[in-house]
Structure formats: C-alpha cells, structure tokens
C-alpha cells in the first residue's frame, strides 16, 4: 500500500493492510511534526510532492524492503499539504514472520524515503518560512 494524500494518515489502516496470519511481527514508524527546530518555534509544516515520481520511488522502496530485508508486506503513507504540530506526516508499517526483518525493513524504508523520494518539507515560523535541507 503506497499513498500520498492530503487527508490525515491512519496508522490502523496501515497495520490492517500488512496483517497476515503468517506474520508474527508488525513494526510501525510514525513521523510526526515537531514544534521546534534549532530553537525556533514551528507553527506547522507544508509538504509538496512530485506525485508520479514519488509513488514510483516509494514502490522501489517497498520492493527492496520485501526482496532484500524480508518484509512480508509493507504500507507507506505520506501526507502532503499543511500538516499541524503532532500530526503524522509519514506512516510506515511492515510485517514479517519474525520480528528482526520487520525492524530492519522499517528502518530501511524510512531512511531511504528521506534520501530518495521527491517530497519537500517547508517549516513555517512566526517570522518566515524555510524549505528544509535546501542549503548546505
């Protein structure tokens, strides 16, 4: 299950999607919006995606999670648009017959997502806004 959407993300939906009788473990990662960065108060975040390419890159991650990390099933959901403090910006759920694979595949998925998937985060402050990681 790969989704990029403006509506709130459902952890339960992701868990339900990866639940199988053959699996004895489900690992979830929920990335939420923090209220500060480098000591500055963040009001909210805005996410923008290149949807067609982001879906393709997420599918590549899902395939590798299964083929190289032993995930049985994986769900990756990413929010776009305005996301408030405390809300989930990303949800990943991974199932596997034994727990080690679901931990490893989940970590692989979030680490790779942050490096390769064309999605951009803008932090909105009281006195300005910044595209995250744009400059060295």
């Amino acid at each position: 299950m790969i989704q990029i959407k403006e509506e709130q993300l459902s952890v339960e939906e992701a868990i339900k999607y990866v639940s199988y009788p053959a699996c004895g473990g489900i690992n979830t990662f929920v990335g939420t919006v923090r209220n500060s960065t480098k000591g500055r108060n963040v009001l909210h975040l805005e996410f923008e995606a290149y949807p067609a390419m982001a879906i393709l890159e997420l599918k590549k991650i899902a395939e590798r999670a299964k083929n190289e990390f032993g995930a049985f099933e994986i769900a990756i959901l990413h929010r776009i648009g305005k996301v408030e403090i405390g809300e989930a910006a990303v949800v990943i759920a991974v199932s596997s017959p034994h727990r080690e694979a679901s931990f490893a595949a989940c970590k692989f998925a979030i680490d790779t997502l942050k490096n390769t998937v064309p999605i951009w985060k803008k932090e909105i402050f009281e006195d300005g806004e910044v595209w995250v990681s744009a400059h060295p």
Partner: peptide
Amino acid sequence: VALIPPVSGG
C-alpha cells in the same frame, strides 16, 4: 523533465 532540489520528506 523535472528539477529535484534536496528532498526532505518524512
């Protein structure tokens, strides 16, 4: 063709 600045999802 698309320009891809540093990504920052997640």
